[in-house]
Every structure is written in structure tokens, then in C-alpha cells.
């Protein structure tokens, strides 16, 4: 079923809030599936960034990968009931943008990795609470 069909069915049913709740529950399950994969990916990027052997290209790929994961997480987490995960993802995205912009007040890479680890902790917690 496409997103457009959902909208149509929900509107036609005249029972918008109830159908919305059902849809949100379905999306929450899919989100957890995504988080499960993302947790592993982001952990790998963090390992790469922390590695003394990583070169500039690796670092840039790692930063972009983390930023993408944080951005996608931020977009949905709070709406689906994972406020603290959403907040953690928001902090990562903000810090990462600052880091990429550079300047004297830009967050340093270790700080960035710490924030990313906190986000990963929140992901793990969400998965644990969901019984995964």
C-alpha cells in the first residue's frame, strides 16, 4: 500500500485519529527495524573515525554517514514516541554541522563521537524496551 493510498483510506474512513494511531504503531515497528540496522552502521562509522589509521577520506565518509543517520533518526524518532532518541540525534546533527563548518568554536571530533555514542545508547535502549 502506498503512502498516497493510506492518506486516501484514512480520509475516506472518517475515523482519522484511530487510523492514525494504527498507522503510527505500524511505523514504529518499521522504525525499530531501521534503528536496528542503523545502530550497527553508525557503530561502524564511529569505529572508523576513532581509528588512528583513518585518513581524510575515511573521516569525511564517516562524518557524512553519521550525519545522515542522525538526520534520518531525528526526523521520525520523537513523532513515533522516542523523544530522548530524537533529542540525542538532534544534538549529533547540530554538533556535526558545526564541526564541518569549522572555526574556533566548532565541536572537536572526540566530542562529536561522544554525542554519537549517546545517540547509539538511546537506540539500544529503544530496541531493548521493545523487546529486541
Amino acid at each position: 500500500m502506498t503512502a498516497a493510498t493510506w492518506a486516501d483510506e484514512a480520509a475516506q474512513s472518517g475515523d482519522g485519529p484511530a487510523r492514525l494511531a494504527v498507522r503510527l504503531a505500524e511505523l514504529r515497528l518499521r522504525f525499530l527495524d531501521t534503528i536496528e540496522l542503523r545502530l550497527a552502521e553508525l557503530g561502524a562509522w564511529c569505529d572508523l573515525l576513532g581509528s588512528p589509521e583513518a585518513d581524510a577520506i575515511d573521516r569525511r565518509a564517516g562524518l557524512d554517514g553519521i550525519r545522515y543517520g542522525a538526520h534520518k533518526t531525528l526526523g521520525l524518532a520523537a513523532t513515533l514516541g522516542y523523544e530522548s532518541l530524537g533529542a540525542a540525534a538532534g544534538r549529533v546533527e547540530l554538533a556535526l554541522d558545526g564541526h564541518l563548518r569549522g572555526g574556533p568554536e566548532a565541536p572537536a571530533l572526540p566530542d562529536l563521537l561522544t554525542l554519537t555514542e549517546l545517540m547509539l545508547d538511546e537506540m539500544a535502549r529503544a530496541l531493548t524496551e521493545a523487546g529486541r
Binding site: T2, A3, A4, T5, W6, A7, D8, E9, A10, A11, Q12, G16, P17, R19, L20, R23, L24, L27, R30, F31, T34, G75, L76, T79
Partner: peptide, 17 residues
């Protein structure tokens, strides 16, 4: 997933098209 969320939200608000 955002598109799905938008669809669900808009459908609930009566925007079918």
C-alpha cells in the same frame, strides 16, 4: 517512512488527495 507518516497524518486530517 516520512512519506508514510505524512500520508497517515494528512489522511487523518481529511486530506485524501
Amino acid at each position: 517512512m516520512i512519506l508514510d507518516l505524512l500520508a497517515a497524518s494528512l489522511g487523518a486530517a481529511g486530506f485524501a488527495d
